[in-house]
């Protein structure tokens, strides 16, 4: 099962933060035990009894005050230095050119690989063991890119590109989310990070660069025709067809992806048909309108999309 936990880091960047969390957790725990212990001691030891006279009216002590001002000062200095060190380790300076440019949209993620030209959505592939420089951009409002097991979170801000590193020690699939509120469907703005062996990653890039196959005949061909004559092309791109819009997710290799609607459901044939029947039913407020396709049309479109491996 995929997880979002920050307590199971899978990269040097996430691990640096995790270690700081453990160290500061211990410090905070000790402070809590000491201070709460003092309070509990007072509660147990100094209870009022019926008829007790008022106690000694001690109004303070300068020495004590100085001591318990200085000790927190030292703790704060230590925490500051630890934080400084961890910031460097978990978020090294960015290179001039990014490996991946990730753009937050309401409510999905676009990933472009400028060095190879791959464009995909909601599923980011990386080679395991290699740090990838990510540039984060926004197409509309603020979003926040968060893959808890791999790296720090960072906002996507209009006209203000941000940079982070992402890497994974081992091959594996990790869940990411948008963590800055961005409107109606903020909840379903998930994505996957798929870490593969360098060979698998190279093969994936090659496959992604290939244009979509044009089905010659049958239901899938009718689906493509439907896709082209309806307004689908106003928002979506399919490499190899006339569709080239960048408003919605690129669909060239749609069928190779594991999730649909930025994670609202898994990408299965049945879910795809439900989605095409009425996306608003599955993800209320999503920018894709309900086209009121007939059952036959849904079937043709789905047959076509399933060829987009």
């Amino acid at each position: 099962m995929k997880s979002l936990t920050v307590l199971d880091p899978q990269s040097p960047e996430a691990r640096a933060i995790y270690h700081l969390a453990i160290v500061s957790g211990i410090i905070f725990g000790l402070i809590f035990i000491i201070v709460a212990g003092m309070i509990v001691f007072a509660l147990m030891r100094y209870r009022w009894r019926e008829g007790a006279a008022d106690p000694n009216q001690l109004a303070g002590s300068k020495t004590v005050e100085i001591v318990w001002t200085l000790i927190p000062c030292l703790i704060v200095v230590a925490l500051f230095l630890l934080t400084w060190q961890t910031m460097g380790a978990s978020d090294p300076p960015a290179p001039a050119t990014p490996d991946i440019v990730i753009t937050g949209h309401q409510w999905w993620w676009e990933a472009r690989y400028p060095k190879s030209g791959v464009v995909t959505a909601n599923e980011i592939h990386i080679p395991a063991g290699t740090p990838m420089a990510v540039q984060l951009e926004s197409a509309d409002v603020l979003h926040e890119f968060w893959v808890a097991q791999l790296t720090r979170k960072m906002a996507t801000v209009p006209d203000h590109p941000n940079h982070i590193w992402i890497q994974s020690d081992q091959p594996g699939t990790y869940l990411g989310v948008c963590s800055e509120f961005c409107g109606t469907q903020h909840a379903w703005m998930h994505f996957l990070v798929v870490a593969e062996t360098p060979e698998q990653f190279a093969a994936w890039e090659k496959a992604q660069l290939a244009p979509a196959k044009i089905p010659a005949s049958g239901s899938a061909a009718q689906g493509l025709a439907l896709f082209q004559e309806h307004s689908c092309m106003n928002c979506h791109a399919i490499n190899g067809t006339a569709a080239a819009a960048r408003i919605g997710p690129d669909l060239t290799h749609f069928a190779s992806r594991k999730i649909l609607g930025a994670g609202v459901v898994e990408n299965t044939p049945a879910n795809l048909r439900r989605w095409l029947t009425d996306p608003q039913q599955i993800k209320p407020g999503v920018k894709m309108p309900d086209y009121k396709f007939s059952e036959a049309q849904v079937s043709q479109l789905a047959d076509y999309f399933e060829t987009l491996q």
Partner: peptide, 15 residues
Amino acid sequence: VSHASAALDWQTKNS
């Protein structure tokens, strides 16, 4: 204090 530590906040912010 854990939120004041930017590195920790990079994980726990907005959660």
